[in-house]
Amino acid sequence: MSRSVPAGLEVAASAFDGARFEEVHGDAVVRIDRAEVTGFMAAVRDAGYEMFIDLCAVDYLSRDPRFEVAINVVSVSPNRRLRVLVGIPGDDPVVPSISGVYPGANFYEREAFDLFGVRFQGHPDLTRILLPDEWEGYPLRKDSPVGSVPVQFKEANKAT
C-alpha cells in the first residue's frame, strides 16, 4: 500500500490487496475490483465510515471497463470522506449490491440500474425508479440520445 492510505483504513487496505488508493483533487479515492466490493465496503463501514452518501454510475464509453460505479461515504467523527470506484465491463454490467452493507444504497442502485442498465446482484428490488416501468432503454448511457425534439419557429414555416 502507498502512503496515500487514509488514516483508519489500514486494516481494510491490508485485507484487500487489490485496493489502489490515491488522492484526486484533495479527495481520498480507492479503486477496487467488483468481486470484492461488498467485503470492502463492509470493512470501510466498520472502520468508521458509517454514513452512506452517494452511489452513482458513469459511462466512459470508449474506456475499458466501460462503466464505473462511484460510492461516496463519510465518517462523521472524525470528518473524512472516501470515494470508492468500481470498474464494470460494458458487455457484462453486473456488480454485487452493497445494500446489505449500507441500506441507503437501495434507491441509488435502482437509479443506476434505471438510467444505465448496471445490474446489482443481491438487490432486493431491482426495478425502475425514476422512469416509467415500461420504459425501454437506458437513457443516460452515452450511446443513448438526449431525445430532443426539433424546435420549430413559426416564421420558418410561413411559406408552407
Binding site: 452512506f52 463519510v74 441507503g104
Partner: peptide, 19 residues
C-alpha cells in the same frame, strides 16, 4: 437509521448527529 440511509441536514441533526 440516519447514518445507514444517508439522511443529512436538519433531519439528521434533530436525531442527534452533529454533521
Amino acid at each position: 437509521e440516519c447514518l445507514a440511509y444517508g439522511v443529512t441536514g436538519p433531519v439528521a441533526r434533530a436525531s442527534g448527529i452533529e454533521y
